Measured scan of single mutants.
Amino acid sequence: DLSALRVEEVQNVINAMQKILECPICLELIKEPVSTKCDHIFCKFCMLKLLNQKKGPSQCPLCKNDITKRSLQESTRFSQLVEELLKIICAFQLDTGLEYANSYNFAKKENNSPEHLKDEVSIIQSMGYRNRAKRLLQSEPENPSLQETSLSVQLSNLGTVRTLRTKQRIQPQRTSVYIELGSDSSEDTVNKATYCSVGDQELLQITPQGTRDEISLDSAKKAACEFSETDVTNTEHHQPSNNDLNTTEKRAAERHPEKYQGSSVSNLHVEPCGTNTHASSLQHENSSLLLTKDRMNVEKAEF
């Protein structure tokens, strides 16, 4: 173990290094160091905050020279020094078990990766560091076993998940096959086929009936047209017969005018059967003409 005197000496050296690497504005270890034209180094955030307070150039807090945003430059070497100082402080805390008085939040800088452990060898070769390295080497064999167990647990979990997924996939297939086998029997399929065939026959029977009705309507229309044509021909046949009657009536009127007047009046009210309204109107006109002729003949006879 380190003596108290040596611990104090190391602590004083760390404090001196820390004062050199402090920012003059925030009085902390410089984060993202930036250098000016006057070779003074500050935190990048502190300098941008200072420049944004005034429009135009501002003055350096140490030498009062003008500073602009374009004049600022990043210093990589200074950032490396800060990183190495942080590593020294971490090693000091691990070796002594004491917390550094002016320690900052170094938890963000710590890294437990194997590459980081290899890099620590180049920091300080001390008894405390050696003991700590031995402890780490002793704890390393235990870690692979834990990793193997965790991997086995994960693989077993994956296997159970896969088996569950396969079961879920197989179950719908089985149910679907069961439904297909038990849903419709052979008799049901035959009945469905016969039902479809009967429906098709009914459709075939319905369509000819409609065509037959249309044919019957067409035949009825044709018969009505033929009947009207026969009526017209009958009226045409009746007209010459009426003319013959008129000639006979004229002759009778010349011989017996008194008797014919009474008979002509009675004939006005008689309509021949089986004739249309057109034929009756023609008869009325003929009878009126005959009456006028008879009157003329009677007057001539009187004179």
Rank of each mutant, 00 (worst) to 15 (best):
Y100C: 00
N191D: 01
S263T: 05
M296K: 08
L29S: 10
V82G: 07
V34I: 09
E249K: 14
V153A: 09
G182R: 11
D294G: 13
F92Y: 05
K250E: 11
T230P: 04
D200E: 02
K108N: 12
T189S: 01
Q205K: 00
Q125L: 11
K259N: 03
D213A: 02
L98M: 08
Q147E: 12
N234Y: 00
Q147K: 12
R295K: 06
G128D: 08
I124V: 12
L117I: 04
E226K: 11
I67R: 08
L21V: 06
K221T: 09
R162S: 07
Y104H: 12
P172S: 00
K31Q: 07
P114H: 06
Q154E: 05
R174K: 10
Q59R: 05
C23G: 15
L5P: 15
L85R: 12
L50H: 10
S197C: 02
N157I: 06
Y100F: 09
P61L: 06
K55T: 05
N267D: 10
N267Y: 00
H256L: 03
E28A: 10
A301S: 14
E271D: 03
N297I: 14
V198M: 08
F45V: 09
Q11L: 07
E28G: 06
K167T: 00
D200Y: 03
I14T: 13
N65I: 07
P257Q: 13
I41R: 09
S145C: 02
E142Q: 07
I67M: 07
D200H: 03
E226D: 07
A301T: 08
Q138P: 01
K300R: 00
I20V: 09
R212G: 01
F92I: 11
L164R: 11
C196S: 05
T292A: 03
S58P: 15
S281L: 01
I88M: 04
E236V: 02
E120D: 14
D39G: 05
K19T: 04
C46S: 15
I89T: 02
A220P: 14
G262D: 13
I20F: 07
V10G: 10
N65T: 12
D119N: 06
S152T: 02
T275I: 14
K118N: 14
L21S: 05
N105K: 09
L72Q: 07
T36S: 15
D200G: 04
A253D: 08
F303C: 14
H284Q: 13
R70S: 09
V121F: 01
N157Y: 09
K49T: 04
L98F: 12
V7F: 02
I67T: 13
K69T: 03
S219C: 12
E148D: 12
L72P: 10
D39H: 01
L62F: 02
M296I: 07
R132L: 02
H116Y: 01
L5I: 08
C63W: 12
V265F: 03
Q171K: 02
R135G: 11
L137V: 05
D188V: 15
S287N: 06
Q261R: 07
I89M: 14
A224D: 01
C273S: 15
R77S: 14
S79G: 00
S241I: 02
P257A: 00
K49Q: 04
Q283H: 12
D66V: 04
A223D: 12
P57T: 06
T277I: 02
F303L: 11
K64Q: 13
C63Y: 15
S264F: 01
Q59P: 13
Q261H: 03
H40Y: 12
A220T: 08
E74G: 14
L5F: 04
H278L: 00
L151P: 06
H238Y: 00
N131S: 13
L151I: 05
P257L: 10
A253V: 11
Q171R: 14
T175M: 10
G182E: 10
L289F: 02
S219A: 08
D95N: 15
F45Y: 03
L5V: 08
Q138R: 04
S122Y: 07
S152G: 10
G274C: 04
I67V: 12
L217S: 13
K64M: 01
R135S: 03
V161L: 07
